[in-house]
């Protein structure tokens, strides 16, 4: 039996008094594009950040490619892994942030090769070659030596996607990748994401762009108040939602 790439089992997370995730479980299969939708505070971003361990779960477990993330089971108890081990586990996920988070003191090219050279210890020449390929892929080959401050928001986000891909991850996490963009720049980023999905990358995307979800997502997951309310194909969840809460959300989004 094939195993899911990401298996999330009953994870919970609280920030002080506020419960962001309540025993959430989810499977993500290889080559799947899963879109997480919901209001702010629904827990979708927290769920995303738990997958690459930017946020640590309070209870439950996440398995990435069969490996338990962030913890080690020993003698019936769970022990947190050390920081270097967690850093190694993060290498399998790439992440694209809402606010791009490009390194401003480096050029686009340098941003992309930073991970491969510094973390994966690959040769700079090899990394640069691949970086140029990625820049071509996202349509920004001529901007290789530009600094982030010289790029538009859409261009920065495309470089950020290239930076994530340079690490050759098994899946890419997207945290509302177009929410911080001017409307006319959203399209170029969605185009890159669409191409990425077509090429077979596993993607977990938190987004408000329902049009993108409708077009590209294999599955749409609607979350509200820390639980998964409804999950299914884009046509099902977006077209004919079963739950009342889903319907209410979609009505408000239009």
């Amino acid at each position: 039996m094939k195993k899911p790439l990401v298996a999330i089992r009953k994870i919970s997370k609280s920030f002080g008094e506020f419960q962001a995730l309540k025993q959430v479980s989810l499977d993500i299969w290889p080559r799947e594009v899963v879109c997480l939708i919901g209001q702010s505070g629904s827990g979708k971003t927290t769920l995303l950040r738990c997958v690459n361990q930017l946020t640590a779960v309070d209870s439950g477990g996440i398995w990435l490619d069969g490996e338990l993330l962030g913890m080690r089971e020993q003698g019936g108890k769970l022990h947190r892994l050390s920081e270097p081990e967690i850093a190694r586990q993060r290498l399998k996920c790439g992440m694209v942030f809402q606010r791009f988070n490009l390194f401003p003191h480096m050029t686009a090219l340098e941003n992309i090769i930073e991970g491969p050279v510094q973390v994966q210890k690959r040769k700079a020449s090899e990394a640069k070659f691949e970086a140029m390929e990625l820049l071509c892929r996202v349509g920004l080959a001529e901007k290789a030596n530009s600094y982030p401050s010289q790029l538009s928001g859409g261009q920065q986000q495309r470089v950020a996607i290239a930076r994530a891909l340079a690490m050759k991850p098994e899946l890419v996490l997207f945290d509302e990748p177009t929410s911080a963009l001017d409307p006319e720049l959203v399209g170029e980023v969605l185009a890159v994401m669409k191409e990425l999905a077509t090429s077979g990358m596993t993607m977990l995307v938190v987004t408000h762009e329902l049009g993108f979800a409708r077009e590209v997502a294999d599955r749409v997951v609607y979350m509200d108040q820390g639980v998964i309310v409804e999950s299914g194909s884009a046509k099902e969840v977006l077209g004919s939602p079963r739950e009342a809460r889903t319907r209410a959300f979609l009505a408000a989004e239009v």
């Binding site: 190694r88 993060r90 290498l91 790439g94 992440m95 942030f97 988070n101 994966q120 994530a164």
Partner: peptide
């Protein structure tokens, strides 16, 4: 320095000191 910078560094596998 914006915390997003630190998170982006972590996202490409860097440890805290790195």
């Amino acid at each position: 320095v914006d915390i997003g910078q630190y998170e982006a560094a972590q996202a490409i596998g860097m440890g805290r000191l790195h």
